[in-house]
Simulated assay, not measured.
Amino acid sequence: MGTRVIESHNDVRGFLTASVILTLISIFLFADRLSGGDVETGAELFYLLPGISFAVAYFVTYKKSYYLVKSNNTNAVEFLYNRPSKQQLGDFVNHVRFKRKEHLMELYGQLNFNLSYELQYNNLTWLLENDVLTKAEYDEKVILLNKSMPITTPIKGFEFGIN
């Protein structure tokens, strides 16, 4: 399950465009008839009815969604935005995030001195990269790990020290 939230508005703009154009033609024909122009009987309805149909099609196909995605936008979980309500959806998503963090911290966030230093360090780094730990929590856990266990294998990367 992802940690980023993306809002999406999905619709078919062609329906809206066609509806506006046909409605404007119908209004123009009606105004032309009222000003004495030569417009056939029912011409306004000929353009207005499809215009209304396209407007209805637009509103039926319109969908506002809320996605929980991973950092690389894969495995998205889609929620309809206002069903049952925006507040209930927000509460549910926050509950899912809290339970996810709680579960992953229980599995990978506890320091276990029966495991190697490198494995625990990699677990903490993975938790940071997946937005389970904040940077401050991560630094605190790494300091505790460094104090509790000597480094048995070198960690690849840059290290700043006194030369």
Rank of each mutant, 00 (worst) to 15 (best):
Y66T: 11
F54C: 08
T41M: 06
S65F: 02
V142I: 15
S65H: 08
K141Q: 12
P150S: 10
L29F: 10
V132L: 04
D11S: 15
Q87V: 08
N94Q: 12
Y81P: 08
F92A: 15
E140H: 02
L49Q: 02
L68R: 02
R33F: 15
S53E: 02
G109M: 09
L115T: 04
F59R: 00
S35I: 02
V132K: 03
S26A: 15
G157T: 04
A31H: 10
A55T: 02
S71A: 11
V39L: 03
L29G: 00
I25M: 05
F79I: 05
V60P: 01
L119E: 09
Y58G: 00
R13I: 10
A55C: 07
L49H: 03
A55Y: 05
L124M: 12
L80V: 13
F59L: 06
A57Q: 07
M105W: 12
G2Y: 13
W126T: 04
E78Q: 13
A76R: 13
D11K: 14
F160D: 14
L124G: 02
K101I: 12
S85M: 11
N73C: 10
E137G: 01
G157I: 03
E118G: 05
E118H: 02
T17Q: 10
P50W: 14
L24W: 07
L145M: 10
S26L: 10
T74C: 07
L68N: 01
L34Y: 05
G37A: 09
A57G: 09
N130M: 09
F158D: 02
D38M: 11
P50D: 14
I6T: 08
A136M: 13
P84A: 05
G161Q: 11
K156R: 09
L124R: 00
R97F: 08
A18Y: 06
E44W: 11
F160Q: 06
L111A: 01
